[in-house]
Design a protein around this nucleic acid. Structure first.
Ligand code: FES
Ligand code: FES
Lengths: 152, 152
DNA sequence: TTAAATAGTACTAATATAGTACTCTAAATT
DNA sequence: AATTTAGAGTACTATATTAGTACTATTTAA
């Protein structure tokens, strides 16, 4: 089905809330309340996001989480990677010596191109785009040149 | 991890073989042999691909499968959809009334843009690109205008 | 009529995801 | 200093999805 996990979806909802709210610091409980996502899940997600540096955590009483960067600076690719790990459409594209058949496989190199295309697509949309309405005049444009894909 | 299923990966390998081989008709056993993928899996995949019209099946002795279209005419998006179903990154993007929170959700419309971007990326690479080397001079280029996204 | 080959269906096993619970540590308030 | 609030970390369980297998029916060539 080529879909993002529910957790990633939740993460966008939750970050979207943080992007829209004025106050800087938000406790996990507050976010859970505001978004309707179960508290343990919110905690888990915020921990993951903090670990990837997308949000900053403040411990102790009156603590909470705040966005590390402006919503415009956080891309959907960042969020996906924080929750799901590296964006790699096929096993083979993760590393050179992962796949058994890599010796007689002509396809791998070309998957890289597709991977790159997907990543570029996700990088070109920001949290701000998600949280607020994308303006109808906007056009997303990607260009992936094959030359640049020696690796990754 | 945002990845394609192994089955989809196998499907590309298998279709890649069919694209490169000269003979038109290939029995499932032959393909299994040539690609090293287990026969039952190959059968299952070819059935799915036949159901989506990407390959044509000939029953009975001397039967087998052949590509329905030239490799240039088959996109990676077609293959993914044949095996995994519709490309929809989030539940919400599948249909209007699927998600409980859709009433107070500002994010859904914007996911559509991302979806479209991903689909466009996958549509712009053909089976021929996968099966043979993509020429280094090639540049993949996508442009997704938000205006065009009333639905889908 | 026999053999070769796909169609269709149903089942099992393996894996990944989602969600929960619990303990530990840090900071603020009293 | 004691207490309370809130995140950090870990480990576990339940659920859902994916992968793989087996079996029967149908079709066509020889
Ligand atoms: S390297 Fe793994 S299938 Fe090509
Ligand atoms: S419509 Fe489902 S979360 Fe937005």
């Amino acid at each position: 089905m080529l879909r993002l996990s529910k957790l990633t979806d939740y993460a966008t909802v939750l970050l979207g809330y943080m992007a829209r709210a004025k106050l800087e610091i938000h406790a996990a409980v507050e976010i859970a309340h505001a978004t309707g996502i179960a508290l343990p899940t919110v905690s888990k997600l915020l921990k993951l996001l903090a670990h990837s540096g997308l949000v900053h955590s403040i411990r102790g009483a009156k603590g909470g989480y705040c966005l590390s960067h402006a919503p415009e600076r956080i891309s959907v690719a960042d969020i996906v990677q924080a929750i799901e790990g590296p964006i790699a459409l096929t096993e083979c594209s993760i590393s050179d010596d992962y796949c058994e058949q890599s010796a007689h496989c002509d396809i791998r190199g070309n998957w890289r191109v597709i991977n790159k295309a997907m990543r570029t697509a996700l990088e070109s949309v920001s949290l701000a785009d998600l949280a607020f309405k994308i303006k109808p005049s906007t056009a997303l444009e990607f260009k992936v040149s094959v030359d640049s894909l020696t690796r990754g």
